[in-house]
Amino acid sequence: MELVVSDLACARGGIPLLEGVSLRLDAGAALVLRGPNGCGKTTLLRTLAGLQPALGGTISCPPDAMAYAGHADGLKAVLSVAENLHFWAAIHGQTGVPEAIAAMNLTDLADRQAQHLSAGQKRRLGLARLMVTGRWLWVLDEPTVSLDAASVALFGSVVRAHLAGGGAALMATHIDLGLNEAQLLDLTPYRARAHAPDGFDEAFL
């Protein structure tokens, strides 16, 4: 189980953002992406998750290995916390909803509809979803947005448990999750040059 990315180039809205990105992630490891706003962290994560095609390079990863958590949590407002999780567990053919609820400290809210949760509570629910996907690699885009300090620590421990269980995590975050073992990767040097070899519109110049 490993993720190997070599010489990846990706674009957002037809504009090349990153090129030559190479990284490797083994089981039990965590990698934190850094870089200024707009440098392409989200684009890179979406490309890795298979939501958009890469401009170039290769991504090698076992199939159905990634669980993606983006800016939106994918929650249904009129479903309760437990129902939301049960749905995602069923989609992934997994169980373990009570454990996920307990791990993200949502036990008291289990029967509450998602529309009545606070922003931080919604975020916790969105992150609890990762635990019922049964996926090995967690791809996290700013997972700590709207979490308080205690919840950040809680999530940090959840990620650590996931790593200890042979999982891996790739995340874009500016907040220290307390994962001292995590490697850092600064994306700034990978910014695409103006003359990307196969940029979308280059053919027109």
């Binding site: 037809g14 504009i15 090349p16 695409a192 040059r193 103006a194 003359h195 940029g199 519109d201 280059e202 027109f204 110049l205």
Partner: peptide, 16 residues
Amino acid sequence: IRARRMSALMTRERMQ
């Protein structure tokens, strides 16, 4: 094509 060329030039300028 001219319109696309224009937007490609603008993109290049923005990236530089």
